[in-house]
Design a protein around this nucleic acid. Structure first.
Lengths: 252, 252
DNA sequence: TCGAATTTGTGCGTATGTATC
DNA sequence: GGATACATACGCACAAATTCG
């Protein structure tokens, strides 16, 4: 069972691209040319190029041509405890490491928890929560989305009720929760990847169908979960770095 | 600028799927039916369904029909130090947690380091290394790939030269390196996601174009890097979990 | 500024092969 | 074996964007 023709053409072009024969920015043969070169109908050439576009190798500009995409360099997001020291935000520290000014916009609302969030926070479904929606900006452009949930029970009526208002704004969850006596000792982060939702792709300036990394983060004290967030970032532009301490098994 | 017809059809179907109107396993209208319903050519219906297939919402079975795919449940891979205790392998522990027997195949060769690997290990390019290629199996099926590199200088001529042979086979890097006096204290893991290479998709039983999570892991002592590995797993079937210790800033 | 050529995006109708039921 | 459905392919057409003389 031979590969279909459009696959074979796509394979040829893909190899040329990864081998550098077709450099980033270079023009991919137009569909007329491909059709001629491979002696096929123009529709087949269209399918081949369409595949490469879906894979992110090629960017097609209507009226102009199709060009080899330059993949952006991946920026590293450090997700370890020591970036949250010094009262700064981890996000700002990461951006600073890349020489980019990091800022964010947010809005907070009091809403009932969804069932999934309630499970993560160990609360009753529909328990009241403060939900804060963040858009993180690197150099003014949106680069990361996050939705954070805190049990209203913990913060209602305190100075940290609204995460991004008051004297503790922008200080990070660990310091804020300390204000109400919650001593966070660790965070759980569950990382995976999936296709971007249409709304996410639009907000993050991604091509539709691109993939995002998601991090489900839950901050905990030794007793309970005090905050959980869903973080979304474009997989093409980011990698997340963890430092995992290794304890030698002294009992073996 | 109205969306093209095939997009509109795909949008309708996608919404039906995520809303549950079309349940997993349900049959998607055939292209003839779609063409009739939307009063378009069958080619347009083909494009619409093809899009959903590429997005992973639909599985097309030739001769039978197109069906709503049920997304597999994500299995959690715990990547924290405490799973490596007790002399077992972290992978086997994770699989056991899911009730699946975990095994692996491997082969080891002495080869020079690639430039990228040498940089990760802090070695000269082309320095000799022991490279071990793993295929991890869950219930007999391949679920994870990994390529591990160790500086030959550390293990040459010792009992742990071949990671999967001898008395220390299958014990994990931490215990093996302890045998040659290397006390591993932490691991760095850099996580990201990208489209699967054709060879990876085939080995992992993924659909072509699917996305994989990659983990670049480096084990270190306090002095140096002693092992590094590239781990590849299907994003649809896995999530990786980290437990991040949080140190309260006592100096602030 | 205009207009022609090029290129992509989308669409139509048809045809053939093959897998499934 | 026949009906159905998907996969691939051909050839053509037109709109919109871009390029360039």
């Amino acid at each position: 069972m031979p590969s279909p023709t459009y696959q074979r053409i796509a394979d040829d072009l893909r190899r040329s691209i990864v081998d550098g024969v077709l450099a980033p920015g270079a023009k991919v043969p137009s569909r007329h040319e491909l059709a001629r070169q491979y002696d096929v109908s123009d529709r087949v050439a269209v399918e081949a190029v369409r595949l490469l576009v879906a894979e992110g190798f090629v960017e097609a500009r209507s009226g102009s041509g199709s060009y080899v995409r330059q993949r952006p360099e991946r920026q590293r997001l450090t997700r370890s405890w020591y970036t949250s020291r010094r009262g700064g935000s981890p996000f700002r520290a990461d951006m600073a490491a890349a020489g980019i000014p990091g800022t964010w916009e947010s809005s907070t609302e009091r809403v009932p928890m969804t069932p999934a969030i309630a499970a993560r926070l160990g609360a009753q479904p529909d328990a009241p929560a403060m939900r804060t929606v963040y858009t993180f900006l690197g150099g003014g452009r949106p680069v990361m989305l996050s939705v954070s949930w805190e049990p209203a029970e913990l913060t209602s009526g305190t100075a940290i009720m609204f995460p991004e208002e008051g004297p503790h704004a922008g200080k990070g969850v660990v310091e804020r929760m300390a204000v109400v006596g919650q001593r966070i000792t660790h965070a759980e982060e569950i990382v995976t990847a999936r296709p971007a939702l249409a709304s996410e792709a639009e907000r993050l300036n991604m091509r539709p169908g691109g993939t995002v990394i998601t991090i489900a983060r839950t901050y905990r004290t030794d007793e309970r979960a005090v905050e959980t967030a869903d973080i979304v970032l474009p997989a093409e532009r980011y990698a997340v770095a963890y430092d995992v301490p290794v304890r030698q098994g002294s009992l073996t």
